[in-house]
Simulated assay, not measured.
Amino acid sequence: MYRFSSPRLLDLMLAMLAFGGSAAIIALSDWRGGLFVENGPVEMMQAALLFLAACLFVRAGYRLREWAGLAAVGLAWICVLFLTRETPRCASDFYAFGPCFADGYKTAVFVASALAVVLLVLANPTLRRMRPSVSSFARLRQFLPRLVPLILPVPLIVLGQVGEAVEWNILEETAELTAYVFLTLCALRAAQAGDMLGRDHQLEPDNC
Rank of each mutant, 00 (worst) to 15 (best):
M1D: 11
R3F: 12
S5G: 13
S5P: 00
S6F: 13
L9P: 02
M13G: 03
L14H: 12
A15F: 10
M16P: 00
F19S: 06
G21H: 06
S22T: 08
A24G: 03
I25Y: 10
I25L: 11
I26S: 11
I26N: 09
S29M: 03
D30E: 12
D30T: 15
G33L: 04
G34S: 10
L35S: 07
V37N: 10
V37A: 12
N39R: 09
P41D: 09
V42F: 09
E43T: 01
E43H: 07
Q46D: 07
A47W: 08
A48H: 03
L49A: 02
F51K: 00
F51W: 15
A54H: 03
C55G: 07
F57W: 15
V58W: 12
A60Q: 05
G61N: 01
Y62Q: 12
R63W: 09
R65Y: 08
W67G: 05
A68I: 03
L70P: 02
F82A: 11
T87Q: 07
R89N: 13
C90K: 11
D93I: 10
D93R: 12
D93H: 12
Y95M: 03
Y95N: 04
A96V: 11
C100L: 03
F101L: 06
A102K: 11
K106V: 03
T107C: 03
L115I: 12
A116Q: 05
A116T: 09
V118C: 06
L120H: 10
A123D: 12
T126K: 10
R129W: 04
R129Y: 05
R129M: 10
M130K: 03
M130L: 15
P132M: 09
S133E: 06
V134Y: 14
V134L: 15
V134R: 15
S136P: 01
Q142M: 14
Q142C: 04
F143H: 08
L144M: 13
L147E: 04
V148G: 04
P149L: 05
P149N: 06
L152G: 02
V154A: 10
P155M: 09
P155H: 05
P155T: 06
L156M: 10
V158T: 15
L159N: 06
L159F: 04
G160E: 04
G160W: 00
Q161W: 05
E164K: 14
V166C: 07
I170N: 07
E172G: 01
E172F: 01
E173I: 02
E173M: 08
Y180H: 04
Y180I: 00
V181Y: 00
V181E: 00
F182R: 02
F182H: 02
F182D: 00
T184D: 00
C186K: 00
L188H: 07
L188R: 13
R189G: 01
A190V: 09
Q192V: 09
A193V: 04
G194P: 04
G194C: 07
M196P: 00
L197D: 01
G198T: 14
G198L: 11
R199E: 15
Q202T: 15
E204C: 02
E204S: 10
E204N: 12
D206R: 07
N207D: 11
